[in-house]
Design a protein around this nucleic acid. Structure first.
Lengths: 203, 203
DNA sequence: TATTAATTATACATACTGTATGCTTAATAT
DNA sequence: ATATTAAGCATACAGTATGTATAATTAATA
């Protein structure tokens, strides 16, 4: 009857390790080209060498598991570099760093990201979380444009208000994926995006 | 024991009508925003007011049904305009017509196309068919570039060989969808793509 | 020593895919 | 006119998936 908090300790650490092991198992299965939609909770549990019910215990549902994977991927890819890009005083350099950061991130695990995003298009639960993260690129681009003074407070010109959205589109996974699947190297993609971004902001 | 061909007649016509009714039912279910992944063969059968087994009879499997939908959508959207773009003698006008054609097509049923493409990313059976159709845009862009004499036989410059792939990326559904979801109108998207395409071919 | 978090085992309800078998009906061929 | 066939449907079944309920186990913590 007495509530005992159990703030932290080995148990929490152990549980966190379990979560990572589950997420890594999921990532491994999704990365396997040969198994496209053979993604069952039981398969993930087998791969992680734990019980199927532990997944439900740690991540409420299938959707919860997949949503957690997106943040896990952001930690694996170097998405922390984005804060570095924001600290960059020169806005043009900031834009360049933003482009390079996202190319590197999308390239870190394209197959997994592609499939995860595909599932999010079919499941609103996951979809909302990913769309919110996608919108951060619009915000980041807007911030950079504001610093360039190319984007004053007055939004009279509709041409200008769409620039951030175009930059967000250019730095999207889908843009990277289309060019990557066409055989372009990551460096080549970066160059292409830098040029297109430049053409966008000077127009 | 005697083989009787049964070439054509009312039965084939009736079967064709059934196929269309099934495809339209599937399209309606996929277009319904509220039902994301509640897409079962039984639901399609109910919507089409036929038996579930008729779907398997007409389209071998679930994958077969979804693959058939893509061609069905191409007929509904005005994809026949692409041949018109090809007959255009002026290559710049041809590129413009290509962009307008695809914007119109993607806009014809974006929710259905998005989900269908998402499923194709998870199912190799459907995925191959859609990737083959996507590649037609690279071919079309290459043809237009060839007519512009911007793309001679010698492929010494890697810069030039990637132009067609960039144009194919710009006319992709994902590019349209990113801009459309950001709130851009179809006309605005067309203008944006025309500018980006222009910036690509003059670089 | 009692309590609790984390994990597991067993079982179950529900739903979906795909196949097998056979039946019906209307169109078609001889 | 009669046999044949395509199209569609009813029932049943096997296999697999998600998610929940219940209870048991183990190790960490109060």
């Amino acid at each position: 009857m007495c509530p005992r908090p159990y703030k932290s300790g080995k148990r929490q650490t152990s549980a966190a390790e379990t979560r990572v092991r589950i997420l890594e198992a999921l990532r491994k299965l999704l990365a396997n080209e040969s198994s496209p939609s053979e993604l069952s909770m039981e398969a993930v549990a087998r791969e992680a060498d734990i019980s199927r019910l532990t997944i439900y215990y740690q991540f409420k549902s299938r959707s919860g598991l997949l949503e957690a994977l997106y943040d896990h991927l952001a930690n694996r890819g170097n998405m922390r570099q984005m804060s570095e890009a924001f600290r960059e005083p020169n806005p043009r350099t900031a834009l360049e760093k933003m482009i390079r950061t996202f190319v590197q991130f999308w390239a870190s695990d394209p197959v997994v990201i592609r499939r995860l995003r595909a599932m999010s298009s079919l499941d609103t639960e996951i979809g909302d979380g990913i769309r919110a993260r996608d919108f951060r690129r619009v915000y980041a681009a807007n911030e950079i444009l504001r610093r360039m003074n190319k984007h004053p407070r007055e939004k009279t010109e509709p041409q200008n208000s769409s620039v951030a959205e175009i930059l967000a589109m250019l730095t999207s996974f889908e843009t990277y994926d289309a060019l990557s699947r066409a055989g372009q190297s990551n460096d080549a993609i970066t160059e292409i995006l830098l040029k297109l971004a430049h053409a966008t902001i000077v127009s």
